[in-house]
Amino acid sequence: MGLERADDAGVYRISDELALIQTVDFFTPIVDDPYWFGQIAAANALSDVYAMGGVPKTAMNLVAFPIKQMDLDILRQIIQGGIDKIREADAVLVGGHSIEDSELKYGLSVTGFVHPARVLVKKNLRAGDRLILTKPLGTGIINTAIKAAMAPPALIDRVTRLMANLNRGAAEAMAAFAVHACTDVTGFGLLGHLAEMVTGSGCSVRIESRQVPILPETVDFASMGLVPGGAFKNKSFRQAMTIFADGVDAVMQDMLFDPQTSGGLLISIASQHAEALAEALTRRGTPAAAVIGEVLDDPIEKIYVS
C-alpha cells in the first residue's frame, strides 16, 4: 500500500493467504502511573492492526528514557504494562530498542497477520452505509482537565481504563461482518479521522452529534475552556469540509474534534447489517457501540453534522 493511500498501517502480501500488517506508535506519558501508561501506549499501538482487520502477532518495545534523572523501576513498570497488554492481545514481545533521552517516550512496533482479501482500509465508504463508533470521545479534554487538577480521582481512573482498553473485542466482533471501511480514532479527533475516510471516497457523510457517545464530564470541562490546542488545530484544518447545523454549538464542535488517545474503531458498514454489528459489539463489551451517522450519495465529500 503506497503512501498516497496512507492508511493506519503498512500491508505487505506474502502469499494469496497471508499479508503482514506493520505499524509503529509511541508517545510521551499521558497519565502519571507508569504501569497504566505502558498499557495505554501498547493498546494504542496494537490498535492500528485491529483497525486494518488484522490480528497482532509480534511486538517490539521502543523506549526513550532519561536514565540519569529517573528511577529505572519506572521503566520496569511501563514495560510491564506493555507486556500485559501484548499478552491480552495474544501477541508476543520479541525484542525492542532503547535510547537515552531527556524526555520519556514509550510505544511499540507491532506486526500482525491478515488475509489479503480481508484487509480493511479507510477509503472504502459506500453510500447508504452506517457509521459505528466503539469508544466514547472526550479523552483529550479530560486529560486537559487532569493537567488542570480539576478531574476527580474516579474520573481519572475511568478515563485511564478507557484508554487502556484494547480494541480487540471490537475487531473480533467486526470480523464476522462484511465491513466496508474502518479506522481508529486518535489524534485528529472523530471528525478529523472521518475526513480522511471521506476524502477521495466520492461520498459525503452525515453525523448525528446527539448519537455520538461522549464521556459525560467532557461537556462541562469543554464549557470551562479546558480544550486542548489540538482540538482547535484539527478543527481549523478540516473547516472547509465540515458543515455544522445551527444547533451544533462550539462546545460540541470541539468535542467532535477532540484528539483521542487510544480511541475506538470507526466502522462503515451496510445499513442492513449495522444494528446486528452494534449488538455484536455490545455483546463483546466494547466501551460504546453507537450508530452515529450515515454515508450519503453526495460526491462533494463533505461532513454534515446535525
Partner: peptide
C-alpha cells in the same frame, strides 16, 4: 495570541 486560547479563556471566565 491565538484564537484557541482566546476561546478557552472566554469560556472559562463565563463559566
Amino acid at each position: 495570541d491565538n484564537a484557541a486560547s482566546q476561546q478557552n479563556v472566554e469560556r472559562f471566565l463565563r463559566s
